[in-house]
């Protein structure tokens, strides 16, 4: 039976569900035990599964990542939480020099089936270093999977898939959407695929591509376009790596127009990777240049100006209009 859940509740449900199903799943991180995590993603886990499997760690992010690596080499399935994306940088060394490589280095003898979860992006008026978008940092690392769900049902199904995956997964949760809306989620234990984009809504005039929290604004933009008689297809690239270009190319082959929306800085972002792939493989289906909507190539501003940085519906619609100016409908 489906229950209406916010995204953070769906994360909690997925953790509970998988910990019940698989005794090898352990969760670890700072303040995740009695406190239930700073966003309450792990609330109730300590009481249900005990302190051996719900591990409050010392305040040391390198340790959290390294410990997850050690646990995973022993056949456990650690799900580590980093409190905010800006605190993930100490994990980068562990992830890029060890977690992503151990299978390759040992020709398959050892591996790291582990998940590092963290909230990603801004929009909640948090302090400095709490609002960064790190997906590109991780998406460039070979041997890794990077997932960025955009709604409760996908957060549930993708987290199950991430935990069950035999390789390391970075799971970036849209901070701004943790409690933004609810959606029916069924605790059916069904994992979603980790290599396929979701067609969030079908359309025929333009393809809007996004992921994570920006999916929310992208959906609003699609609503606004619908009122103008423009039918937008919205693609949710919830599995950023490996990147499923087939779904995007198929959509663009149908619509001939594409705008990609990301919150992270512009240069070298994942939108650029998608745009480059469209240039290589989809140019002949395009009526107009592919445009990007993104954060700026600046430091993430503090709370008062974070909305200057984070794209909104207005900025998305502005780029969409440019596309239709270049290639009018019909």
């Amino acid at each position: 039976m489906a229950v209406n859940l916010a995204l953070i509740e769906a994360i909690n449900l997925a953790l509970k569900s998988e910990m019940k199903r698989d005794g090898n799943v352990v969760v670890l991180g700072e303040d995740i035990g009695r406190n239930g995590g700073v966003f309450r993603a792990t609330v109730g886990l300590l009481d249900e599964f005990g302190g051996d499997r719900v591990i409050d760690t010392p305040l040391a992010e390198t340790l959290v990542a390294a410990m997850a690596i050690g646990l995973s080499t022993q056949g456990l399935k650690p799900v580590a939480e980093i409190q905010f994306s800006g605190f993930m940088y100490p994990c980068v060394d562990q992830v890029v020099n060890h977690a992503t490589r151990l299978r390759n280095r040992t020709r398959g003898r050892l591996s790291c089936p582990m998940v590092i979860r963290a909230p990603n992006g801004g929009g909640i008026h948090a302090p400095e270093h709490h609002s960064e978008s790190l997906e590109t940092t991780f998406a460039q690392m070979p041997g890794l999977r990077v997932v960025a769900p955009s709604n409760p049902a996908r957060a549930y199904g993708l987290l199950l898939a991430a935990i069950r995956d035999p390789d390391p997964v970075i799971f970036l949760e849209p901070t701004r959407c943790y409690r933004l809306f609810k959606q029916p989620v069924e605790d059916d234990g069904e994992a979603l695929p980790l290599d396929t984009c979701f067609i969030d809504r079908e359309g025929s005039d333009i393809t809007l591509v996004s992921w994570g929290a920006m999916m929310h604004d992208t959906r609003l933009a699609a609503d606004a376009l619908a009122e103008e008689g423009i039918s937008a297809e919205v693609v949710d690239v919830a599995t950023l790596k490996p990147l499923d270009m087939d779904t995007i190319l198929t959509s663009v082959a149908k619509t001939g127009r594409c705008v990609i929306v990301q919150e992270s800085p512009r240069a070298g972002g994942w939108a650029s990777e998608i745009a480059a792939n469209l240039a290589e493989h989809g140019l002949l289906s395009l009526f107009a240049p592919v445009l990007r909507v993104s954060g700026y190539d600046t430091i993430m501003p503090l709370a008062k100006q974070e909305r200057v940085f984070i794209p909104d519906t207005e900025r998305i619609l502005k780029e969409v209009r440019k596309v239709f100016e270049a290639a009018p409908k019909g």
Partner: peptide
């Protein structure tokens, strides 16, 4: 066993996870 580790010291905290697994 783990393979030898060239980055200096980064492998040391991984022992925490391995030791924790034994204890668990």
């Amino acid at each position: 066993d783990f393979p030898l580790s060239v980055p200096i010291g980064t492998h040391v905290p991984q022992a925490i996870g391995v030791g924790y697994a034994f204890k668990l």
